[in-house]
């Protein structure tokens, strides 16, 4: 359940929300996060390494995601850090989704997306 406290962080930056969404499906490393954001938004050059890792560092700092201790599952992933969304992160993402849904509802009500 989203509390009012979670609402204090809203609105999230698009990048932060994207990362949280990508991690809802389970733990992932940077490259996988980027790929999933790309697939979802369809934009090819949307997320670069600089923006991604800075956002990851911020999210870890705020405690919405956490870094996993273990190394990657296979040899080639040795250098990769894996990330996982925390409970707080999940709640914040939900609060953001609700906020967006409200706005979407308003947009619909005004016929912006055609009559539902």
């Amino acid at each position: 359940m989203a509390t009012s406290e979670d609402g204090d962080f809203l609105p999230l930056t698009p990048v932060a929300f994207d990362i949280l969404l990508s991690l809802l499906g389970g733990e992932a490393h940077g490259y996988a996060i980027m790929r999933s954001v790309q697939e979802r938004t369809g934009a090819e050059a949307s997320l670069h390494a600089g923006t991604l890792y800075r956002a990851l560092a911020r999210l870890v700092e705020t405690g919405w995601i956490e870094e996993l201790e273990r190394a990657g599952s296979d040899e080639s992933d040795e250098r990769r850090r894996y990330y996982r969304v925390t409970g707080v992160g999940r709640r914040v993402a939900r609060a953001e989704a609700l906020r967006l849904e409200n706005q979407l509802g308003a947009a619909r009500a005004h016929g912006l997306l055609g009559r539902a």
């Binding site: 490393h29 940077g30 490259y31 980027m34 090819e44 050059a45 670069h48 390494a49 600089g50 991604l52 890792y53 800075r54 990851l56 560092a57 250098r79 990769r80 850090r81």
Partner: peptide, 24 residues
């Protein structure tokens, strides 16, 4: 500090993405 922590991965991701972009 940031560079030490994420530099390798960022570089790797940048290069991999570059390969993708060239292929496409």
């Amino acid at each position: 500090q940031f560079r030490e922590r994420h530099g390798d991965e960022m570089t790797r991701l940048f290069l991999e993405k570059g390969v993708d972009a060239r292929r496409r």
